[in-house]
Design a protein around this nucleic acid. Sequence first.
DNA 1: TATCTGACCTGCGCGC
DNA 2: TGCGCGCAGGTCAGAT
Length: 301
Amino acid sequence: MPELPEVEVVRRGLVRWVVGSRLGAVEVLHPRPVRRHLAGPADLAARLQGAVAVDAVRRGKYLWLQLDSDEALLVHLGMSGQLLVQPLDAPAERHLRVRVGLDGERELRFVDQRMFGGLAVVPLEPTADGLPAGTGGAGTPSAAALPHQVAHIARDPLDPYLDVEAWQRRLRRRRTGVKRALLDQTLLSGIGNIYADEALWRARLHYARPTDTLTRATAVGLLEHVRAVLGEALLQGGTSFDALYVDVNGRSGWFDRSLAVYGQAGRPCPRCAALVRREPFMNRSSFTCPTCQPPPRRARW
DNA sequence: TATCTGACCTGCGCGC
DNA sequence: TGCGCGCAGGTCAGAT
């Protein structure tokens, strides 16, 4: 599933293969992925056609292609979205939803099986703090502008402008469980179920540990574990369990081979050999080591 | 205001 | 073989 490392791999692919290109004809093959472009598919196509992509920017799991028209093509991959750069004559993918011409030679394709993701053309607004909005170009800070649809999304763990002290104070003021807080994109963005479980295992924290019982040192240590696991995943091209996550050239990542607990129920913990446990959590699953991550006496789910 | 829950969506694996 | 069900999970609207 696309979390921060997977989206960053896609963003880097866009920088290499799409930035600098002039967008051509747009074909919307299913209305759902463009549902957030309220003016409709025809308006989306009209705004894209002829524009030049000048940068690819990411904040958390949100991604946008900045256009020379002072607008942006905002993309969220949802659970199964893919952005592929393909030759014009490449066969259509089974779940191809939108195609956008590139320089009359190639196509940018949005493929999405489950259609939780989507595209919209939106205006850019100055950031509230006047700082770069996220990661752009070759991993450098972006322009200080972002779509208002992303304004409520917090900075991510790999963002150099993340205010760690402010984050740990907000985290510890919350009255919830630590995993629920890690998944809250308005507190810290980019983390999904996979990397939340991996970071909590590294930090030896149970997912139901109340955030208001964390010390400053524990909170900051957890952030370091989050950064480490995201960084390692990025180096390996992200996590691919199946064909649902690939980069813009259709290649899968390798980090699933390095997962300690996520998806490892019944297998030995790499640290203590106790059997990893899977438990229902927020209509999904949490994977923990029962020895390294004992449940807290007072739990918040 | 803060926190929590359920709906959205499709394909796959499993049990019957 | 075919059917029904559960599961995967990011986001957001609505409920508490």
